[in-house]
Design a protein around this nucleic acid. Structure first.
Lengths: 334, 334
DNA sequence: GGTTGCGTTGGAAACGTTTCGGACACGGGG
DNA sequence: CCCCGTGTCCGAAACGTTTCCAACGCAACC
């Protein structure tokens, strides 16, 4: 920049003013500066820029788990889009479901002076973020120990929707598969119970399956066990996209066809032998909202108390969730 | 850091030495400094750190298209992992297939003083990167106008593998669907032609379908046209995961079952009514290799001339690619 | 003609680190 | 006793911006 100033025969301050908003500079001078910039191929050094007191870099951080999971990938994509439109870059911190690693990753990002953090939090305590002086928006689930903005999905409503749908088909033994103790898991289970209570049906606790892992493999194994019991469920609610996949694999293996409803839509769900009924929400909007909110916080535009945005879920009927109870146990019934 | 120095009663230089490698400092002094750091909760400011002359930030940039595409997501995930292990963060630039936007995004990232760039390039000229003084690794396809490292897949070999497989089943009319002029597309087509030539079979050019877009929708439409012709192909080679999806949708609509081979594996491929045969490669390794190479370049460890890493493709037979020619036209043939 | 005010410009300070030359203490060798 | 080397430590300079204050020219006004 100093070279530009020399070349244009002006002072540094003037160059800086031109590079930024550029008012308070005579048109003629500004033009000379712009010419010099073009000739020298000057490009502002964002790092030096972010060094000034109080200034933050024009980057947001996004901390989430496995990008290979379309759920996370969608959040990443959509938040990236929104951030990009405002000239913000996004620094990614991927965490493999390891609470300690997450803390380290977050502090790494904070030390990079990002303007804000979007976090899909692991369990664990996040109070260490409270004093960091950086706005934080949690995505998909809240965190403990800190009161910050949160954008999420109506998990309980979704769980209830899925379960009600199955109960309405006449199912009385509806299994639910749950990934390890995420917050979302608990809410979806609550919806499941609520639906049962409303319908006056008692929950068979042995049909509430807490998986050791949130993987398709774990769900597959659990479903096999479930279906080979003497009293198998006639319907299965898989509370996660990966779990749904596992359930379907298991069912193919044992050749059974209980009703199935999944939580979260997934690619090709409608192309499977029996198209899969799911409870879905607008995940992309989840990411967009989070990014928008964070940008407003970072710019100081938004000083409201912490917000809580909840997106609705909708049932998408495709077939697997509309199978009646009696089709499951006996192959050629009816 | 200046506070830490005061608190520990030492000079700045000493604190800096402790924070970094930390030799040339007496153990006792170092301990005092560490104590002060802990008490004050001091955290190094990475931004200021990167400001020093010659220094680059400890971030890599990754520029790619739609993260929603599992192909890109996998690259992102795996390269993130490798970078993270070396203490590097990854700044993401997502580009929506817009050559001008890509250039802007890249310059944005360069201005952030990233230590290196990993780019899945759009067509367009990338010579503007030559003088940037930042190491660049291209991923999945090379770029024009610059001679840099490149990590890619054996596209031609894969295209050939897929086509040979179909020809071996006795197919003589094999259609190929191609996304718009990516480099990869050209190579896959070349493999397709080679396979035909080797087998002494002439290519019907009307079966080489250049799509206007690389989407499932475009492929679906093209496949419909293809199958409703008086002389439809008996086999289809979809040169991209999204294209494969489109092909399958179209086939379901028209109720035909030509043989299908896709390029790149995808989730649930084995769960579809007819499991899908694909030519696949280790995409995660693509990302890992790129990150490793870039880290070596950035650290100055690796000063070899630009490398060209090519990963092999393998055929995964699942059923859709093993259908004989005559099963396609007539529904109940055989 | 002096004063005031405005639009424009110049340049120093500040940001938080790393690095580098030098200072200081201490001990050993001449 | 002096000199020198070694180990430790200090603090100024530098990095490339932004921002703030001062200064300047000019016109309008008193």
């Amino acid at each position: 920049m100093i070279d530009v100033a020399r070349r244009a025969g002006v002072g540094l301050g003037t160059v800086s003013r031109v590079v930024n908003g550029g008012h308070g500079v005579r048109d003629e001078t500004a033009e000379r500066v712009r010419a010099a910039i073009a000739e020298l191929g000057f490009q502002r050094n964002e790092v030096a820029r972010a060094l000034r007191p109080g200034k933050k870099s024009s980057s947001l951080a996004l901390v989430l788990g496995d990008l290979t999971n379309p759920f996370y990938a969608t959040i990443a994509k959509s938040s990236l889009e929104v951030a990009g439109q405002s000239g913000f870059a996004v620094v990614l911190g991927s965490v493999d479901e390891d609470p300690e690693g997450e803390k380290r990753a977050i502090q790494e990002l904070v030390s990079r002076q990002v303007a804000g953090l979007m976090i899909v939090p692991d369990q664990g305590d996040h109070s260490f973020l409270a004093g960091a002086g950086v706005p934080v928006v949690f995505v998909d689930r809240p965190a403990h120990g800190i009161d910050a903005d949160i954008v999420m999905v109506d998990n309980e409503g979704g769980g209830r929707l899925a379960t009600e749908h199955l109960l309405e088909q006449g199912h009385r033994r509806v299994a639910i598969l749950l990934a390890p103790s995420y917050y979302t898991t608990g809410r979806r289970l609550r919806g499941y119970r609520r639906a049962h209570r409303s319908a006056g049906i008692e929950v068979d606790e042995s049909l509430v399956v807490q998986l050791p892992e949130g993987t398709a493999e774990a769900a597959e194994k659990a479903t096999l066990d479930l279906m080979l019991r003497p009293d198998p469920p006639t319907a299965v609610f898989a509370s996660t996209n990966f779990l749904t996949e596992g359930v379907l694999r298991a069912l193919r293996e044992v050749g059974r066809e209980p009703a199935v409803v999944g939580f979260d839509d997934f690619r090709l769900a409608d192309m499977l032998p029996t198209p899969v009924t799911v409870v879905a929400s607008d995940i992309a909007e989840l990411g967009r909202s989070a990014a928008r909110l964070l940008l407003d916080r970072a710019s100081g535009t938004d000083t409201r108390p912490p917000q809580r945005i909840v997106l609705p879920c909708a049932l998408i009927q495709r077939g697997s969730g509309e199978r009646p109870p009696d089709s499951a146990p006996k192959r050629k019934a009816r």
